[in-house]
Amino acid sequence: TEEYTYTDKEKADRAAKEWANRGYTVTVTQDGPTYRVRVG
């Protein structure tokens, strides 16, 4: 499991979509002003 942190919702959504397109399980959680994209 890897985790990426973004401050921009659009970038987080785009990253999540790209990982999902590659067949990974993706979870996006909002943590205050940041968005965490957990992959795998």
Results as ranks from 00 to 15, higher is better:
residue 1 T to I: 14
residue 1 T to A: 11
residue 1 T to N: 09
residue 1 T to W: 15
residue 1 T to H: 13
residue 1 T to P: 11
residue 2 E to G: 13
residue 2 E to P: 07
residue 3 E to M: 09
residue 3 E to G: 06
residue 4 Y to L: 06
residue 4 Y to K: 04
residue 4 Y to R: 04
residue 4 Y to M: 05
residue 4 Y to P: 02
residue 5 T to A: 08
residue 5 T to F: 13
residue 5 T to V: 14
residue 5 T to G: 04
residue 6 Y to G: 03
residue 6 Y to A: 01
residue 6 Y to T: 05
residue 7 T to E: 10
residue 8 D to S: 13
residue 9 K to M: 07
residue 9 K to D: 03
residue 9 K to S: 07
residue 10 E to D: 12
residue 10 E to M: 09
residue 10 E to F: 10
residue 11 K to H: 12
residue 11 K to A: 15
residue 11 K to E: 15
residue 12 A to G: 02
residue 12 A to F: 03
residue 13 D to W: 15
residue 13 D to I: 14
residue 13 D to V: 13
residue 13 D to R: 08
residue 14 R to S: 11
residue 14 R to D: 09
residue 14 R to Y: 10
residue 14 R to P: 01
residue 14 R to Q: 14
residue 15 A to G: 04
residue 15 A to I: 08
residue 16 A to Q: 04
residue 16 A to S: 05
residue 16 A to K: 04
residue 17 K to N: 10
residue 17 K to M: 13
residue 17 K to E: 13
residue 17 K to S: 09
residue 18 E to V: 08
residue 19 W to Q: 01
residue 19 W to P: 00
residue 20 A to E: 13
residue 20 A to N: 07
residue 20 A to V: 11
residue 20 A to P: 00
residue 20 A to R: 14
residue 20 A to M: 14
residue 20 A to I: 14
residue 20 A to W: 08
residue 21 N to W: 08
residue 21 N to R: 14
residue 21 N to P: 01
residue 22 R to G: 05
residue 22 R to I: 05
residue 24 Y to D: 01
residue 24 Y to A: 04
residue 24 Y to K: 04
residue 24 Y to P: 00
residue 25 T to S: 11
residue 25 T to R: 10
residue 25 T to N: 10
residue 25 T to K: 11
residue 25 T to W: 12
residue 25 T to Q: 11
residue 26 V to E: 00
residue 26 V to Y: 02
residue 27 T to G: 04
residue 27 T to P: 00
residue 27 T to R: 07
residue 28 V to R: 03
residue 28 V to E: 02
residue 29 T to I: 14
residue 29 T to A: 06
residue 29 T to P: 00
residue 29 T to L: 12
residue 30 Q to T: 07
residue 30 Q to P: 05
residue 30 Q to F: 07
residue 30 Q to W: 07
residue 30 Q to S: 07
residue 31 D to V: 13
residue 32 G to L: 03
residue 32 G to Q: 02
residue 32 G to D: 02
residue 32 G to W: 03
residue 33 P to S: 13
residue 33 P to L: 12
residue 33 P to R: 08
residue 34 T to K: 08
residue 34 T to D: 05
residue 34 T to G: 06
residue 34 T to S: 08
residue 34 T to R: 09
residue 35 Y to V: 04
residue 35 Y to F: 12
residue 35 Y to D: 00
residue 35 Y to T: 04
residue 36 R to F: 10
residue 36 R to L: 12
residue 37 V to E: 00
residue 39 V to M: 03
residue 40 G to Y: 15
residue 40 G to S: 15
residue 40 G to M: 14
residue 40 G to H: 14
